[in-house]
Amino acid sequence: MRVGLLRAVGAATALYGVTVTAVPDLLARPSGLADADGRVAEATRVSLRPLAWRDAASGAALALAPEGPALRTAALVRIAADFGDAVLLGGTLPDRSTRRKAVAVSVGWGALSVVGLLARGRRA
């Protein structure tokens, strides 16, 4: 397990989640969930906050869990969330280009956690 990589992914995810919880437009706009003028509906903001908070919580768990089973479980939760995002956002966002970007980002973050979980290496 590459503990340092998992901790970095966790910290980045937690920071992103807290930031998007506070400012959901940071996720809504690149996801194609804003109107033609770039405005994001309040209902969209309300809907995105729990997703962002999930990222904050799972990222914090990954960053802070003790090595061993707790860290493995936190990594698996993060992997499931990222690959789940790829499937769900990839199938539901408004346009093809946005769906592709969302899948790439989600799979990329999930893959980092997979590498961190499965790679042999020096422990932090």
Score class of each variant (00 low, 15 high):
76 L>K: 00
114 V>T: 11
38 G>M: 10
79 I>T: 01
25 D>H: 11
6 L>C: 00
68 G>H: 02
18 V>P: 03
39 R>Y: 13
24 P>A: 08
19 T>G: 09
91 G>C: 03
43 A>Q: 09
99 R>D: 05
5 L>K: 12
79 I>D: 01
19 T>D: 12
102 A>N: 03
97 S>K: 15
112 L>Y: 05
96 R>V: 14
30 P>A: 01
12 A>L: 14
31 S>I: 02
60 A>V: 14
123 R>N: 11
88 L>T: 06
16 Y>T: 13
2 R>H: 07
7 R>L: 00
5 L>M: 14
123 R>H: 13
71 L>P: 04
37 D>E: 02
94 P>T: 08
74 A>N: 10
92 T>N: 00
78 R>D: 01
9 V>D: 00
118 L>M: 12
95 D>Y: 10
101 K>M: 08
8 A>L: 11
121 G>I: 06
62 L>M: 04
101 K>N: 11
88 L>Y: 04
59 G>V: 03
33 L>K: 03
51 L>Q: 15
93 L>S: 08
12 A>R: 00
26 L>G: 04
104 A>H: 06
52 A>D: 11
87 V>R: 00
11 A>R: 09
1 M>H: 14
123 R>L: 13
119 A>R: 14
116 G>A: 01
8 A>C: 06
69 P>K: 14
116 G>M: 01
97 S>G: 15
31 S>W: 05
118 L>C: 14
55 D>V: 01
122 R>G: 03
18 V>N: 08
82 D>L: 05
76 L>I: 00
74 A>S: 10
95 D>R: 09
119 A>M: 13
30 P>I: 01
28 A>D: 13
40 V>R: 09
66 P>T: 12
59 G>A: 05
50 P>A: 06
33 L>I: 05
105 V>E: 07
66 P>L: 12
42 E>T: 15
14 A>I: 10
61 A>F: 03
121 G>R: 02
85 D>Y: 01
68 G>Q: 01
70 A>Y: 13
96 R>T: 15
26 L>Y: 03
1 M>L: 13
81 A>N: 06
17 G>N: 07
50 P>R: 03
86 A>R: 03
84 G>V: 01
13 T>L: 10
123 R>D: 13
50 P>K: 04
60 A>P: 12
104 A>L: 11
62 L>V: 04
18 V>H: 05
7 R>Y: 02
18 V>E: 09
2 R>E: 05
97 S>V: 13
75 A>I: 04
